[in-house]
Design a protein around this nucleic acid. Structure first.
Lengths: 201, 201
DNA sequence: ACGCGGATCTGACAGATGTCATGGGGGATC
DNA sequence: GATCCCCCATGACATCTGTCAGATCCGCGT
């Protein structure tokens, strides 16, 4: 019997996934979590065979939660289940210690299969995603460039960004400029979109 | 027996919802669709009692699909099930003829209840969402302002937008300026974010 | 010790952006 | 018919943005 932990912030989706996996004769959902922090706590407490984590979660990202679980409950195998197949997500998830990566628009039957393979100790990756991940390479952005881009996402002005990051306005513009160059964009908005799409933020 | 049509573009989520609703003794999923156009076709063909539609779908939005179903198969009752409780979404969905609106982070048990009530002829709304919808009022944007903002979302320049909409650059800047004013934003990016968040795009 | 790259800053410049005043044309409303 | 709003446009202005050239500091590897 494979014991599962399910972490997903959308209540209805979580319940639906629980129902879906509950139909499998060899699986049982032993715990559910609505955010990354809850997921870590539950992983420590219930020691499931497989932890199924969404990436886009409040409080603690699925990726950060993966790293935490890796530290606090190393025998728990983490399978990432997320909406977006961003190359950067895959890479960071695997670096954090995930054992598999499934996107939410894969066929429903694949999920149970992935869970079984991860439980058996295999690494499970969508091959086309893996190709995209290796093709686009790691993030070319430095830490500061990432900070600045992230702060610029919502439409903040240079002055705003400078204030929140405690930098001079000129420095912020320099970072923005180099981030724009590295993403081959034509302004900060496009740069943020591209970086986001690649999972670099 | 309540006959259901399920339209949701993420395969895994669709399968999971199908599993969840399949557990209910008085419901059966008679058709599934991966985009809005498929949903309309399936609604016409299978004439389900209730059509469960996501809003964020390719080809045809859940809202557009609602209007189409209303025309082509008026006896089918549409229940919108979507990720974001944007006030503008609710309003437009109801205007298009939806009979209910449920957000994906509602408790899982609520979904089956909502389906039953819609099947029985009731209108089902999340009360707090309804309040937000009435509170924020309808979209203050004109058609053109919406077009321009939408075109600007990805970081396009004024010249790009002017080219795609066949307008003069000055006109584009005027529309952007008035959209920025109406959304109380400080630049186009923030305006697009706010409009998007309210479901005005 | 030396060089390299990242983080931080400044100053200057061209071009993009946001604002405003102003105009004409068309449809809806009163 | 007058009024209002939306569509479309132009020109001028102040500000914001993106780029580039330089400059200092620090840590890391050879």
């Amino acid at each position: 019997m494979i014991r599962l932990l399910l972490a997903e912030d959308q209540h209805l989706v979580r319940g639906a996934l629980s129902a879906l996996l509950g139909l499998e004769a060899d699986m049982t959902v032993v715990a559910e979590a609505a955010d990354g922090a809850e997921a870590v706590t539950a992983a420590v407490e219930y020691r499931p065979d497989v932890a199924l984590l969404d990436i886009e979660m409040p409080v603690l990202t699925g990726i950060d939660a993966t790293a935490e679980i890796r530290r606090a409950a190393p025998e728990v195998r983490v399978l990432i289940l997320t909406t977006f197949g961003r190359p950067g997500y895959l890479r960071r998830a695997m670096d954090a210690g995930a054992r598999g990566f499934v996107v939410k628009d894969a066929p429903a039957a694949d999920l149970a299969a992935a869970v079984r393979r991860v439980a058996a100790g295999e690494i499970v990756l969508d091959p086309s995603l893996a190709v995209a991940s290796l093709g686009s390479g790691p993030s070319p952005l430095t830490d500061r460039e990432r900070d600045v881009l992230r702060a610029a996402e919502g439409g903040a002005s240079v002055a705003d960004i400078a204030a929140t990051l405690a930098l001079s306005a000129g420095t912020v513009r320099n970072y923005l400029s180099s981030a724009i160059g590295k993403t081959a964009a034509r302004n900060r908005t496009e740069a943020a979109r591209i970086a986001h799409h690649n999972g670099w933020l």
